[in-house]
Design a protein around this nucleic acid. Structure first.
Length: 785
DNA sequence: ATGCACTCTCTTTTT
DNA sequence: GAGAGTGCAT
């Protein structure tokens, strides 16, 4: 490997970054500017200059990025030995190796968010606090924020003098205790304990500072305080730190990413060299201009202009749709057009704000036989079956892990009720034992029935046996658990589709273990479990398949596609409601950056769509185009065919003129300012611009346009039963009234609405569920009460 | 103790 | 619409 080769084909700025001799370096790298290339080449460069690979640490954002970096280095001829991993896996390893120095057992368990939540709930019960007042989710976030800002419980208590804060401090303290007892760490702890270790333990700090002569961090804009500190500790000695990032792509503010890490970098490293990569090699200049115009609306940023020599390209398309179903249908048509034009499915990706949005698209893809792949590696690891079996493994690895114990002790059912488990738990607490330890002494617990005691003892013996095994191969070990626990048998005794599904998942996990055994260099139970806990969205995604990729905007970071489709670009969705766009400017700016990240993934074709209305959390909601759509340069984009769809989009730009586009239009909907959705007024949505409307409508018989607005129970006062619904020409119905349907049988009236095909009743049928019945087609008979 | 049916809340993004 | 939690019947 020659230095010349390593610098070949780089532009001057890239070359400056790659060939930077040493000392702190910050690379400000806009989208598509060859960032990854610079990082890998720089590592190769350092190696040609005699830096041993094992003295280099490269921190990436996902495990997949780490894998990719390793394989790129391999191709460049860099010898093995470079540490390439995420912050979390790096820390997990450091802690594994130095566990006793932070008061842990090296077989410690990593709690994922769900485990943490479980533990918080346990603490709430223990402290007799209601989940109503202390929403576990909020408490978890508070604790996580506290940890991320190095605030221990006692300091947290001092900072929060209000009742809620004081209680949270108490929960936090107990939570910490519980984790320590269980020999467990949560995600934040991985970082926090590493910071503490490096801070306190000179020997360890010296070791890592000495070892890593060069530290490189990718996606630096998304690091939080703890990660920032780790970087500083590690590079304190050699001061050879390279950070690469782009403040316009910071999208993890909600996780504590702090733009100041990047802005303050110079304070910590005054001798900093900065290189700006502003040539974009990815996108057409049109796409780039659209992205730049959008992001220029952000105030908190360093103004920077990206240049490209790429061709103009086609105008990005903006497509207005009625509903997500309509949107999915249009999306499919667009995909087919592009496919005919020679774009491979694997060169296309659909991005959305929230995972839930994939459902509609999946359904439409399925019925049109479009192969797709969801980039959401964690979905598999979040399956109940996987979590159950993981808990068995965790308990075997770490017998102190009470959360795992509680999860599996009666799964499959072993005849232990809540009561027995609670008795066991309080016994364990009284004698400071883990639940597993307590279970092995179950015969000493007076309040336990003989049968429960026997079961617990048997379970404990079996589990203890497993925990002494220290397996080298995961597959056989897991298989043993699956069989001996009766887990699989319990699934197989049912013959439902669901059970078959479960069995498939179990099998898939066994395959995963087999693959791990085959691929891992040093297989061990703890390593296997770390991997399972630290998988990220993109990790399991294989690029090779000829399929459209579906993913969240967050997951799209770092990727690129010839054609990108961003769906659901709506108020309340893309500036997401929960990002509190109205009260919190930085929240809004982060949402804008997210959109910007999505746009800049596109090389040639960009499609942006929004819906006028959608169901969210089972409720009907009006959305309409996102304010961000108005921020795109008008002349650079094209409004999709489909006549009034584009007209709608246009008119809504002009201040929500005609339609109901922006939600503040002609008719108000229960007062959007105060949160929409509970209109109690009329049920028939006022008609809007008639002709216009008719022409928009759906294709064929599908969604038939026509103002559609359901009345549901919620539309009425708390006691809706008996309230009257008047359907023009079809008389009055009462909420809760029983009606009979020729096919569905009896049901209770749960609402009414006006559809394009006339008035309809929403009825909950016994055994059939909720249906919408068009009164013009179906004769409902009313039962006299 | 278990399983089922019902109600209630809720999820933005993720290591 | 789903998943968790609750209450009731077995």
């Amino acid at each position: 490997m020659q230095t010349g080769d390593v610098l070949e084909g780089l532009n001057p700025e890239q070359m400056r970054a790659v060939g930077h001799p040493g000392g702190p370096l910050m690379v400000v790298a806009g989208p598509g500017s060859g960032k990854t290339r610079v990082v890998t080449r720089r590592i190769a460069f350092l190696v040609t200059r005699g830096v041993p690979p094992r003295a280099i640490l490269a921190v990436t954002f996902t495990n997949k990025a780490a894998d990719e970096m390793r394989s790129r280095l391999d191709k460049l001829g860099v010898p093995q030995g470079v540490t390439a991993s995420t912050f979390h896996s790096f820390c997990a390893n450091v802690l594994r190796r130095n566990a006793e120095r932070v008061g842990l057992d090296s077989n410690y368990t990593i709690y994922d968010s769900a485990d943490s939540l479980r533990q918080i709930k346990n603490v709430l019960t223990e402290l007799n606090l209601s989940e109503e007042h202390f929403r576990p989710q909020s408490v978890a976030r508070a604790i996580s924020n506290a940890k991320s800002s190095l605030t221990p419980p006692n300091r947290y208590e001092k900072r929060h003098s209000d009742q809620w804060g004081r209680n949270v401090a108490q929960i936090y303290a107990r939570y910490e205790e519980a984790l320590r007892r269980a020999n467990a760490l949560d995600f934040d702890d991985l970082l926090l304990k590493t910071v503490e270790l490096l801070e306190r333990d000179l020997e360890v700090r010296n070791y890592y500072q000495g070892r890593y002569m060069h530290v490189l961090v990718d996606e630096y804009q998304d690091t939080n305080l703890l990660q920032h500190m780790i970087v500083r500790y590690l590079s304190e000695k050699h001061r050879n730190i390279t950070v690469v990032g782009d403040s316009d792509q910071m999208i993890y503010g909600w996780r504590g990413a702090d733009i100041r890490s990047m802005l303050d970098f110079e304070k910590h490293f005054p001798e900093l060299t900065t290189v700006i990569l502003d040539r974009n090699y990815r996108s057409t200049s049109r796409i780039l201009r659209v992205a730049s115009e959008l992001i220029s609306h952000n105030k908190e940023r360093h103004p920077k202009t990206l240049r490209t020599e790429n061709p103009e390209g086609e105008k990005p398309v903006i497509c207005g749709c009625e509903t997500p179903e309509d949107e999915a249908a249009k999306l499919v048509r667009r995909i087919e057009t592009l496919r005919q034009r020679g774009v491979k499915l694997s060169d296309m990706a659909v991005f959305y704000r929230g995972n839930a949005q994939s459902r509609t698209i999946e359904a439409e893809f399925q019925s049109n036989l479009i192969p797709y792949e969801i980039v959401q590696g964690t979905a598999f690891f979040e399956r109940k079956e996987v979590k159950d079996l993981r808990a068995y493994l965790q308990l075997a690895a770490n017998p102190m892990d009470d959360v795992s114990f509680a999860r599996v002790v009666n799964v499959p059912p072993r005849g232990l009720g809540n009561k027995s488990v609670e008795t066991l738990q309080s016994f364990a607490r009284t004698y400071s034992l883990s639940m597993l330890q307590a279970a092995s002494r179950a015969d000493q617990i007076a309040d336990l029935s003989a049968r429960a005691a026997g079961t617990l003892k048997g379970f404990a013996e079996w589990m203890t046996g497993l925990s002494q095994e220290n397996p080298r191969q995961m597959m056989p070990f897991l298989k043993k658990i699956v069989n001996q626990s009766g887990y699989l048998k319990n699934i197989e005794k049912k013959e439902t589709d669901e059970a078959r599904d479960s069995a498939d998942i179990v099998n898939e996990l066994l395959n995963y273990a087999t693959e791990y055994d085959a691929r891992s260099l040093e297989p061990s139970l703890t390593d296997f479990l770390s991997r399972m806990s630290l998988v990220s969205d993109v990790d399991s995604w294989g690029e090779q398949a000829d399929a459209v990729s579906l993913m969240t905007l967050h997951a799209s970071k770092g990727l690129e596609f010839r054609a990108v489709f961003i769906v659901g670009v709506e108020e309340e969705v893309l500036p997401h409601v929960r990002s509190s766009p109205d009260s919190d400017a930085s929240g809004l700016e982060e949402e804008r950056r997210l959109f910007h990240v999505g746009i800049t993934r596109a090389k040639e074709f960009l499609w942006i769509s929004y819906c006028e209305e959608r169901m969210s959390q089972g409720r009907f909601a009006l959305t309409g185009p996102s304010r961000f759509i108005e921020e795109l340069p008008e002349d650079e984009v094209e409004y999709a065919e489909g006549g009034s769809s584009s007209a709608g989009a246009r008119s809504s730009r002009g201040g929500y003129g005609g339609g109901y586009g922006g939600g503040r239009g002609a008719w108000s909907f229960g007062g959007r300012e105060g949160g929409y959705g509970r209109s109690r007024g009329g049920y028939a949505r006022p008609s809007y611009g008639d002709d216009d409307r008719r022409s928009r409508g759906g294709r064929g018989g599908g969604y038939s346009g026509g103002g559609r607005r359901e009345i549901e129970e919620d539309d009425f006062t708390d006691d809706a039963d008996g309230e009257e619904i008047e359907l023009p020409g079809f008389g009055k119905f009462r909420m809760g009234e029983t009606v009979a349907h020729p096919d569905f049988g009896e049901g209770k009236v749960a609402g009414g609405m006006i559809t394009g095909s006339g008035p309809a009743l929403i009825v909950n049928f016994k055994g059939v569920g909720r249906r919408t019945v068009l009164l013009s087609y179906t004769k409902l008979t009313r039962r006299k009460t």
